[in-house]
Simulated scan of single mutants.
Amino acid sequence: MKLFAVADLHLGFAANREALAEIQPRPEDWLILAGDVGETSNHLRLAFESLLPKFKKLVWVPGNHELWAVSGRDAEPGARALRGEERYLAFVELCREYGVLTPEDDYPLIAVDGGLLRLVPMFLLYDYSFRPADVAEEDALAWARAGGVRCADEQFLAAEPFASRSQWCRKRCEETEARLAALGEDDAPRVLVNHWPLREELARPPRIPRFSLWCGTTRTRDWHARFKAGAVVSGHLHMPSSRIIDGVRFEEVSFGYPKQWRGRRAPDDALRRIMV
């Protein structure tokens, strides 16, 4: 069995929906969907119904776009847009309807490329800590705006029932850290999967470096070393890359918006094989 990953399918775009048909079947392999499949339950259903027949198992973690609560985008006309944690948990239930693995499930031990690994899907969010040391947290948004950077999360990504996204992030990190610690001396290398990158140096888009504010948390900087990662998978930045840090491979596996991939690479080529 092989393990593949892709993020940021953004199925709100017609070209990206059409691109699903170009992903080739790999019926013995697993596919990680590392967030930003789309904004609605219909986008997730479309992804699952297109990809489940092609793969043995799908794994999903949320991105910021799934968490956007935008009036009129939910499945039922006039339905109340689910917000915050309620929205996330509704998507978890949708995944379970299709048999898709989520961050709320046990971390499976799977055989990949002839060896065992522990697959760890995570949902950690961000807390504005990817900023210069001389910028206080309460000044972070003003710092980003001074660089001409804004993020739609400030309008659409509700944190309910938490007081803030930073508080939600702290809870998710504490819970996930405890689960990872509970694995103990499990000898299998882990594949850590999160939509947002785990390290700040991976979260600096060259054209808009202050977008880093919405890209992760410094809480996870050493998780790859502390928790025996063989590989770390993320998306969000729309900057596909593969880097080695402390002997661990960090894979950014974004597909991206149509203008970012059309004429540059075939949709099937966006799937990254994850090896440890």
Rank of each mutant, 00 (worst) to 15 (best):
A7S: 15
A7G: 12
D8R: 02
D8M: 01
G12R: 08
F13P: 00
N16F: 13
R17D: 07
E18C: 10
A19T: 00
I23Q: 01
I32R: 10
L33H: 10
L33E: 00
G35V: 03
D36L: 04
D36P: 04
V37T: 13
V37K: 05
G38D: 07
T40Y: 04
N42W: 09
L44C: 13
A47S: 12
L51W: 02
L51E: 07
L52A: 14
P53I: 06
L58Q: 05
L58G: 01
V59H: 05
W60P: 03
N64P: 03
R73N: 09
R80L: 14
A81R: 09
L82Q: 11
R83Q: 15
F91L: 14
V92N: 05
C95V: 11
E97R: 13
T102P: 01
P103M: 09
Y107H: 08
G115K: 15
R118W: 13
L119H: 08
M122L: 15
M122A: 11
Y126W: 15
Y128L: 14
P132D: 06
A136F: 02
A142M: 09
W143T: 06
G148E: 12
D153P: 12
E154N: 10
F156K: 06
L157W: 12
A158R: 13
E160R: 10
E160G: 04
A163I: 01
R165L: 15
W168S: 03
W168G: 06
R170M: 00
K171A: 11
R172T: 14
T176C: 04
E177P: 00
R179W: 00
L183E: 15
E185Y: 00
P189M: 12
V193I: 15
V193S: 03
H195W: 08
L198C: 04
I208T: 13
P209G: 07
R210P: 00
R210D: 05
R210S: 06
R210W: 10
G216M: 10
H224R: 10
G230A: 11
S234C: 15
S234D: 07
H238F: 10
I244V: 14
I245S: 07
D246Q: 09
E251S: 02
E252T: 12
S254Q: 08
F255H: 14
P258Q: 08
W261C: 06
R262G: 01
G263I: 07
R264K: 14
R265G: 01
D268H: 08
D269V: 04
L271P: 03
L271Y: 07
I274W: 10
I274E: 10
